[in-house]
Nucleic acid binder design. Structure first.
Lengths: 222, 222
DNA sequence: GTCTATACTCTGATAGAC
DNA sequence: GTCTATCAGAGTATAGAC
């Protein structure tokens, strides 16, 4: 692996464990196996530029997990619930430390480091765009895909925080269940209304398992 | 206001804007209007002890908002949606900076400051207990109250993070809508099953507005 | 490109006068 | 209890040999 890649990767790992302010250049150099001089050679902007590269890198990697986790499940609802359970297992196996660096940095220093906040915003915007495009491809309307991806990302980042504090999988499981129910109701409604409009890659995609009431959850609430 | 209260309050304010590591003692002294010596007089544990006091203080204050925000609404569903909308407005009015200090500190330094993580865990545990007790008092079963409060807290903390990064109210609105739909379905189910068991403080508490299908969202999913 | 040595600033914390 | 002066150490960043 190239040196600059090693440095950015080490930074991402440190960011999600201790945040930006608590991460020092010397510590980063040790973790990356490179002297401090190399860091400033590859990243003339110093610590901030390394963090920026780390955020972009992990942001791009994270959104690829969405199709990877949801594609195997024929209906979105069970896929969402399984994805949250998988996130819980992953975090528990790392001692409740493996949070998302983008979330950590945004929470920590959004106001004091405007440049990093801007990058976090770009990353999140990509999450929303690619995520809602994927969900639309799975049969949700554009508007509902937009709502679901926002709620999903919020629930995920928040579950990271709560699970990390309480050292419990329950935030993930509860968030996964409520979202799965919401998405399941949407899917049932779309299937009942017009399954012809969106010929997704999934096979039969009939109504849910034993829950096919075909009732949308009060589409236009507010 | 007493000096130690002023110090803890100033710390809470700094914590939610820049996190723990980036907040210095001198900055805290300036913000609290007290010299550094006073800080160590009132908090012999130094910076860490001040942060601990700030977390406990704001944690206790935040959970009181739950009944305050939900009591005015006869059904939980609209109350939840309104509460998330209120949080979005509050955050927007402060330039997307007013995050929850407990969430910030937990995300930032849960692993590097075990003592503060422990305190955050205690605060969150109180949130879960008092929150689920309140929700049970509003008619949810104990098990569902437990699930809803976990999902609600996760969605809230996560919405803070996303909204702060993207400077958008949408994470709050989307999270509020999905949770409101979930809670609304629960309420409709309970009302249809047996409205006698839980004689809450609410009045008629009939089925939801124009959505009274009385269909539980697949109670025992997993 | 890699690595060492160092300059300069700021940190948390303390001692002690008032 | 309040406040000032100061310490020892860690922080980022840089200069320059290899």
């Amino acid at each position: 692996m190239r040196t600059d890649e090693r440095i950015a990767l080490a930074m991402a790992e440190l960011l999600r464990r201790q945040g930006y302010a608590a991460t020092g250049i010397n510590q980063l150099a040790r973790a990356a196996g490179a002297p401090t001089g190399s860091i400033y050679h590859h990243f003339k902007g110093g610590k901030r530029e390394v963090a920026a590269a780390a955020l972009r890198q992990t942001g791009a990697a994270y959104i690829q997990l969405l199709p990877l986790l949801l594609d195997p499940h024929p209906d979105l609802a069970t896929g969402v619930e399984a994805a949250f359970a998988a996130a819980a297992r992953d975090m528990e196996s790392t001692g409740w430390a493996n949070m998302c660096p983008v979330g950590v940095v945004t929470a920590e220093i959004a106001d004091v480091e405007p440049e990093l906040r801007e990058i976090a915003a770009e990353v999140m915007q990509v999450w929303v765009e690619e995520g809602s495009r994927y969900l639309a491809g799975r049969g949700l309307s554009e508007q509902e895909a937009h709502t679901v991806i926002h709620a999903l990302l919020a629930a995920l980042e928040g579950a990271f925080v709560l699970a990390r504090g309480m050292r419990s999988a329950e935030p993930f499981l509860a968030a996964g269940r409520t979202l799965a129910v919401y998405v399941g109701a949407l899917e049932a409604a779309e299937a009942a209304a017009g399954p012809a409009a969106t010929a997704g890659a999934a096979g039969p995609a009939g109504p849910g398992p034993a829950t096919g009431t075909g009732r949308p959850p009060t589409a236009g609430r507010a």
